[in-house]
Amino acid sequence: MEVRTIKVFTTVDNINLHTQVVDMSMTYGQQFGPTYLDGADVTKIKPHNSHEGKTFYVLPNDDTLRVEAFEYYHTTDPSFLGRYMSALNHTKKWKYPQVNGLTSIKWADNNCYLATALLTLQQIELKFNPPALQDAYYRARAGEAANFCALILAYCNKTVGELGDVRETMSYLFQHANLDSCKRVLNVVCKTCGQQQTTLKGVEAVMYMGTLSYEQFKKGVQIPCTCGKQATKYLVQQESPFVMMSAPPAQYELKHGTFTCASEYTGNYQCGHYKHITSKETLYCIDGALLTKSSEYKGPITDVFYKENSYTTTIK
């Protein structure tokens, strides 16, 4: 009895394709271990004539594949690729409408935090270190965002349907971005203890939790000093293409032309909904596939993004 075979390709990165001759009487799992086709788990399936010449994702289970996976995804987590594939199996079914010149995501599976993050990423200057993220990001900007969303979920250790947080998501993504040249110098002034300067680099240099107003941050924000008295913390120097200011959701007025974009969060910790506000020729609110415009805006804002380049204080 002759062994019926077909020729397929296996890959971990969709760049390096490895030619395989597979036995049609055995499952993919018996031949390769966990195997995925377009995100779908085909591990328990036997090869079919229609699979001839198709590319299958496999887990990096030998040295060659491990090197290829690390170079593309910059992670050695053995569960990463499987999590990416199972997320992709959902995100490829989502709709990605162009809204006001940006790629958004039609609401499904509690994905409003991903839509808000995706919209924000198209408006701030950011370059990702893992080629996987950078490639998928370019495709997302062009309207094909399924891979990018699935990668975000995998890097953030999230599953489809789980509630997510924009600030946490951005923080994970910033860790995989090139923020080497970003720098922030802060000064804390206390009447009792004097003053202390701190220099922050990388992710810490672009994120701040405690106030939404970048102007206020430049002037000074009140913080408790270690001595128990009130101290003032203010920005001395900022070198970065953008800054992200966050605070627990509270009524906040966004003035046209003073910011790049913002995240609105309605609801409580267990259950809520994100919308995205962007400042173009007027203010726009993007909620999944829905767009509304207004000249002014007041609502429960939790993150505001500002364009920056270089700032030095005039406070002496």
Rank of each mutant, 00 (worst) to 15 (best):
R4W: 13
R4G: 13
I6E: 07
F9D: 10
V12A: 10
D13R: 07
T19Q: 10
Q20S: 12
D23V: 14
M26G: 08
G29F: 05
Q30E: 12
Q31V: 13
G33S: 04
P34R: 14
T35I: 13
Y36F: 12
L37S: 13
L37E: 13
D38A: 11
A40H: 12
D41K: 08
K44W: 12
K44I: 15
K44C: 14
K44R: 14
I45M: 14
I45V: 14
P47T: 04
H48N: 14
H51R: 05
E52D: 13
G53P: 04
K54L: 15
F56D: 05
Y57P: 03
L59Y: 15
P60Q: 10
T64K: 12
L65M: 15
V67T: 13
E71H: 11
Y73I: 06
H74F: 10
T75M: 15
T75I: 05
T76C: 14
T76I: 11
S79C: 10
S79A: 14
F80M: 03
F80C: 04
L81N: 00
G82C: 13
Y84E: 08
M85Q: 09
H90V: 12
H90A: 14
H90M: 11
W94H: 00
K95M: 06
Y96T: 10
P97L: 12
V99K: 06
G101H: 02
S104Y: 10
A108C: 14
Y113T: 08
Y113P: 01
Y113G: 02
L114I: 09
T116N: 10
L118G: 00
L119K: 08
T120W: 10
Q122T: 04
Q123S: 03
E125H: 11
F128N: 03
A132M: 03
Q134K: 11
D135G: 08
A136Q: 07
A136S: 10
Y137Q: 00
Y137S: 07
Y138W: 13
Y138P: 07
A140S: 06
R141Y: 09
R141K: 15
A142H: 14
A142K: 14
E144S: 12
A145Y: 04
A146Q: 04
C149M: 11
C149G: 12
A150C: 07
I152F: 15
Y155H: 06
C156G: 02
K158G: 04
T159N: 11
T159R: 14
E162N: 00
G164D: 04
V166Q: 01
R167D: 00
T169E: 03
T169D: 06
S171T: 14
Y172P: 04
L173A: 01
H176D: 04
C182E: 01
R184K: 03
N187E: 11
N187I: 04
N187C: 15
T192F: 11
C193E: 01
Q195L: 14
T198A: 10
T198W: 12
K201T: 14
L212A: 05
Y214W: 05
Y214L: 11
Q216V: 07
Q216C: 07
F217A: 05
K218T: 01
K219I: 07
Q222C: 09
I223R: 01
I223E: 09
I223Q: 09
I223V: 15
P224H: 13
G228W: 03
Q230D: 08
T232I: 15
K233F: 05
Y234V: 05
Y234D: 10
V236E: 00
Q238T: 03
E239C: 11
F242M: 06
V243E: 06
M245A: 01
P249G: 01
A250T: 15
Q251H: 15
E253R: 02
H256G: 05
F259H: 06
T260F: 01
C261G: 00
A262N: 05
S263I: 00
T266N: 11
G267Q: 08
G267H: 04
Y269Q: 08
C271W: 10
G272D: 08
K275Q: 00
H276K: 07
T278L: 10
S279I: 01
S279L: 01
K280V: 07
E281N: 00
T282D: 08
T282I: 06
L283G: 02
Y284W: 14
Y284K: 04
C285A: 06
I286W: 00
A289I: 01
A289S: 09
A289W: 06
L290E: 14
L291S: 15
K293W: 07
Y297V: 07
Y297G: 00
K298C: 14
D303L: 04
S310W: 06
T312A: 09
T312E: 04
T314S: 15
I315W: 15
